[in-house]
Nucleic acid binder design. Structure first.
Lengths: 228, 228
DNA sequence: GCGATGCTTCGGTTACGATCGAACTATGAA
DNA sequence: TTCATAGTTCGATCGTAACCGAAGCATCGC
């Protein structure tokens, strides 16, 4: 009889519509902020915060603090699989859900994240900078090498200017579409700014996506190659 | 944002402790009555009834009416798999549950079901009677053949006596430990009574299990053989 | 017909949890 | 320092759902 609160607990966690929407949104493997998740769940940030705390306490979510943001992800692979299987089950019962839709591939390619470049291009840029020894990973953080400093000067970015700011120069930022790190910090901001200044790319009015011009695209890919 | 009530709905269904316990109890594949499930859930029958109605409406349960009993089972294989996977997940999170325990194998072998024989022996008996053409399936029900009637007379059961009762002679009863049908009805009752009268078996005080004596065991197996 | 049993429905209580406004903490930028 | 943004915590409200007693059906066996 007394078998203890077992599947009931996780069932209840998933059983709230707001939480279910949050979890569904996170099943893509992307990390989202509390505010974004509040939007997904259709609730205020306060409410979302308590929901997220419960989900974390229940072991379904993990959070990663990053500046003033707090990125939430599913705790691990097992959670994703559970959610996926429940979604599959629900779909089989006839509760066919609204499909995610086209989902703006442009947003996945390149978009603004706070003030720096994110998406496929953002991840690619950091990968390339590390591959060329311009940036190296130091523990959890990132550090600019001397080679990197001179390379950047050549494309018009004066790092000494950036050092005057109290903001860290390099910082790793979790990319929610690629689920890998891209470059944040004042250097990340400076790089994006230079792309925009050079006319390689421009921001869009409504969306967070960054649109590269054909020429800018060419230049960017040349500047940050991905070697085999 | 609006993705519809999807996994939240089944999550909520599973999220109630009483319902979760019921579902867990049914995951063994056995069919249980509302009263039994109420016991499992630690609630009254009324409450259990509403829970069961919800689970059925949600497509998780199916019920099969049988006389004044109502046997509930998981709707299908998919439900069982979902519950199993959730239990596995929960166990992995550290919510290790109380193990079902030894579970009285005697109860699975032979027990009383209302007034007839159930369990492995009950199922075996009906199988054997059908195999020997003593009973044949007619639509949903069961019917005694002439051969069956004479065979039974030989072991001391006068069917004409039984016919005088308004109670059906043969009835199929879902066995919850075997998940297959066994013989109910006045004939099922008569058969069990004869076993008890002959001293082949006896009821136990506390449990519902039927204990066969070594000799009774031998006789029963000889009388109701299972052919290859 | 009768009483007994298994289960559902109705009515009303109670309790828990989702929700948000407002206040508080923390980080970042100037 | 000051302002702005991101999140959490507090407090209180409100709805909903779980729960049970009691009454109502349905089925069985006599």
């Amino acid at each position: 009889m007394k078998e203890g609160p077992d599947i009931a607990q996780i069932g209840a966690l998933i059983g709230d519509p707001a939480r279910a929407n949050m979890l569904a949104a996170l099943t893509g493997g992307r990390a989202l902020t509390a505010t974004e998740l509040a939007g997904v769940g259709g609730i205020t940030v306060q409410t979302a915060s308590t929901h997220l705390a419960k989900l974390e306490a229940g072991g379904l979510l993990a959070q990663r603090k990053q500046g003033r943001h707090r990125y939430f992800t599913l705790a691990d692979e097992a959670v994703a699989r559970l959610i996926e299987s429940m979604m599959g089950f629900a779909a089989g019962r006839g509760h066919l859900r609204h499909q995610p839709g086209p989902k703006e591939p442009a947003l996945r390619k390149a978009r603004i994240c706070y003030d720096h470049l994110a998406g496929d291009y953002g991840v690619r840029m950091l990968d390339s900078l590390i591959a060329s020894s311009s940036i190296e990973a130091v523990g959890e953080g990132l550090a600019l090498t001397e080679k990197g400093e001179s390379d950047l000067k050549r494309i018009g970015i004066d790092v000494s200017d950036l050092r005057s700011s109290r903001r860290p120069l390099c910082r790793s930022c979790l990319d929610w579409s690629e689920r890998r790190a891209h470059l944040a910090g004042s250097l990340g901001k400076a790089l994006l700014s230079s792309f925009l200044d050079k006319g390689w790319a421009r921001r869009t009015a409504e969306s967070r996506s960054i649109l590269f011009s054909p020429e800018g695209d060419r230049q960017f890919l040349k500047l940050f190659p991905v070697d085999a």
